[in-house]
């Protein structure tokens, strides 16, 4: 290991006591509270290398997503990571997609290479620096959404995307949000709050104009500054369940992401139970990577566990 910053982070994490990373703490409670006495550490910060022609950026996990996006924007690029006050490592460890997922892609697919500190304090690297790679097992997929329970993310290589020349938000009342979603190609988001439909169109100017004209045939759309305010809780449904009253019951006030299945709701989602086989496999994965359970103890990635 030649990078002194990563070596110092390994030393900081150590190899014995219960430990977890604190990033921006925007989604810190996910998976349950950390066990009392868990030591909190911060991941290193800094943007190491943005290669616009490769559409990649190498960045340390403690860097804020906002700072990263500011730097990338200078070269007309962005990532799929949600910008909501958190860190790059936090966004990946949580794995929740941006509101604009239809246009910007999923978080899990944006992680090309990951360097993390293992439960026994070693630096481990998974994946590779290129945009295409099937060399060995897909450790990056496993790390996204693992809530810091398998390894503590130190540094990553993330895929970047061009920022489209035009991006607008439109809203209309009394239109069928599902019909809107089915008719559009360039929508980055289609949201529905029970009354109004909100659409984000992104792309070449001519394409956005064409899609806007198409929207005009479906309803009276007006340009707005951005999406509606989002309720606190996050539900995961299938796209079809969004039109099912039974599935949506208990959400309270909501903003649903049409075509995706995410619902931002004022009340928490009732948990579905998880199969014993999946629980057993999940436990084997956890034990293989963290035999003593010292990484983010108290957190459970399977909240639907009976």
């Amino acid at each position: 290991m030649s990078d002194p910053t990563l070596a110092a982070f390994c030393d900081l994490v150590g190899s014995h006591d219960p430990v977890a990373v604190a990033g921006g703490k925007t989604r810190f409670g996910l998976g349950g509270s950390l066990r009392e006495g868990t030591r909190l550490v911060s991941a290193p910060e800094g943007i190491l290398r943005h290669l616009p022609e490769e559409m990649t950026v190498q960045v340390r996990a403690g860097t804020s997503v906002r700072d990263l996006h500011e730097a990338l924007a200078e070269k007309g690029q962005r990532t799929a990571l949600p910008e909501r006050g958190g860190s790059v490592g936090g966004a990946l460890a949580v794995g929740e997609n941006d509101l604009h997922v239809l246009g910007r892609g999923r978080v899990r697919e944006s992680l090309l290479q990951v360097r993390y500190v293992s439960a026994d304090g070693r630096l481990v690297s998974g994946g590779g620096p290129t945009v295409k790679n099937v060399t060995g097992f897909d450790i990056p997929r496993l790390m996204v959404g693992s809530l810091g329970t398998l390894g503590l993310i130190a540094e990553v290589m993330v895929r970047t995307n061009p920022i489209p020349p035009r991006s607008i938000w439109l809203t209309a009342r009394d239109v069928d949000p599902f019909a809107v979603r089915d008719s559009l190609v360039a929508a980055s988001a289609v949201l529905f709050d029970g009354r109004g439909t909100y659409v984000q169109l992104e792309g070449q100017v001519g394409d956005v104009v064409a899609e806007q004209a198409l929207l005009a045939t479906l309803g009276r759309f007006e340009e707005v500054a951005g999406p509606p305010p989002l309720p606190l809780h996050r539900w995961s449904l299938t796209p079809a369940q969004l039109s099912d009253e039974v599935c949506m019951a208990g959400a309270g006030d909501f903003v649903a992401s049409i075509g995706v299945g995410t619902v931002f709701a004022s009340l928490p989602q009732p948990r579905a139970t998880v199969s014993p086989a999946l629980i057993a496999l999940t436990e084997r994965v956890k034990t293989a990577f963290d035999p003593t359970g010292r990484l983010s103890p108290g957190r459970d990635v399977l909240q639907g566990r009976p």
Binding site: D138, R141, L142, G145, S236, T238, P239, T282, V285, V301
Partner: peptide, 13 residues
């Protein structure tokens, strides 16, 4: 098929 299935991304692994 839901937006963000819970647990590790064992599908991806």
């Amino acid at each position: 098929l839901d937006a963000e299935p819970e647990g590790y991304d064992l599908r991806g692994a």
